[in-house]
């Protein structure tokens, strides 16, 4: 019995390493031949479009035109109130708590905690990959989940990334977008932060796919979610501060960053 398990493990490992080498995206240091790899070919259509756009703008008197897409924001006054609220929530509550947590818990443990929660949320990614018809993504996510759960001690160690299994971070907001749903409008939720109407509906859907929701007792879910948030914040202290420091209008900067990031994720 033990031997069969071991054999199965070796098979999985071999497969994973084969997969990693054949995926074409080598993480080796810079070498010219990497530049003409499969990755580049795969990216080519999007890139050509954007480069052409840049040169087209150049010829016109107006240098940039409407290159950037923006999200409608009819609720701006209310959103700004919630933005202020979240800002204070961060500096008065979340950041002090996360800083305290950071001084007590070593970084390695916090990274493991992050890995654990990420691995646990596998059903969300798997289902949304399927819903978007990304069967290879769903397959690679499954491999990653199995490898991390079995060899990575229940997801504490992220072996999948180490062996070059790519992540396919799909959520229901993206699934809705792929099937033609527009963002509708921007919402900056209190506590939860930037979203759109579409992504809010998506997030609500994802909760049903998240194993944390079904974790035994009624109280486990909020506690574990709280831990996830504090842990994540402890690894990102400074990010929000630098966004604020660089922005002339932090509210608009955050809204635009959120929206641009979502657009690029949908495009992937």
């Amino acid at each position: 019995m033990k031997r069969t398990c071991l054999a199965a493990l070796i098979v999985i490992l071999c497969f994973v390493s084969l997969e990693a080498t054949s995926s074409g995206q080598s993480t080796a240091t810079y070498a010219p031949e990497n530049l003409v790899g499969a990755h580049r070919v795969e990216l080519a259509p999007i890139q050509v479009a954007s480069l052409k756009e840049a040169s087209a703008e150049e010829e016109e008197a107006e240098p940039i035109g409407s290159l950037g897409e923006t999200v409608p924001d009819p609720l701006e006054p209310l959103n700004r109130v919630f933005f202020e609220f979240n800002d204070r929530l961060y500096f008065w509550v979340l950041k002090p708590v996360a800083t305290g947590y950071k001084t007590v818990v070593p970084e390695e443990v916090r990274v493991c905690t992050r890995n654990f929660f990420h691995n646990l949320a596998f059903p969300v990614r798997f289902v949304n990959n399927l819903f978007q018809g990304k069967f290879f993504g769903a397959f690679e996510e499954t491999c990653g989940f199995l490898v991390n759960s079995v060899i990575g001690l229940g997801g504490l160690a992220d072996i999948a990334t180490a062996v070059d299994l790519k992540r396919h971070e799909e959520d229901m907001g993206q699934t809705l977008a792929v099937h033609g749903a527009g963002p509708a409008f921007y919402i900056n939720w209190p506590f939860l932060g930037p979203s759109t109407l579409r992504d809010t509906i998506g997030t609500a859907g994802d909760i049903f796919l998240d194993p944390l929701t079904y974790l035994g007792d009624y109280w486990y879910a909020p506690y574990s979610r709280g831990l996830n948030v504090v842990n994540e914040t402890s690894l990102r202290i400074g990010d929000y501060e630098s966004l604020k420091k660089a922005a002339l209008d932090p509210y608009v900067a955050l809204r635009d960053a959120y929206y641009q990031n979502r657009l690029s994720k949908i495009k992937e």
């Binding site: 990497n34 530049l35 580049r40 990216l43 050509v48 040169s55």
Partner: peptide, 10 residues
């Protein structure tokens, strides 16, 4: 890691 590059004229 340098993943790739594209050149289109200028």
């Amino acid at each position: 890691n340098y993943l790739g590059e594209r050149v289109d004229g200028d």
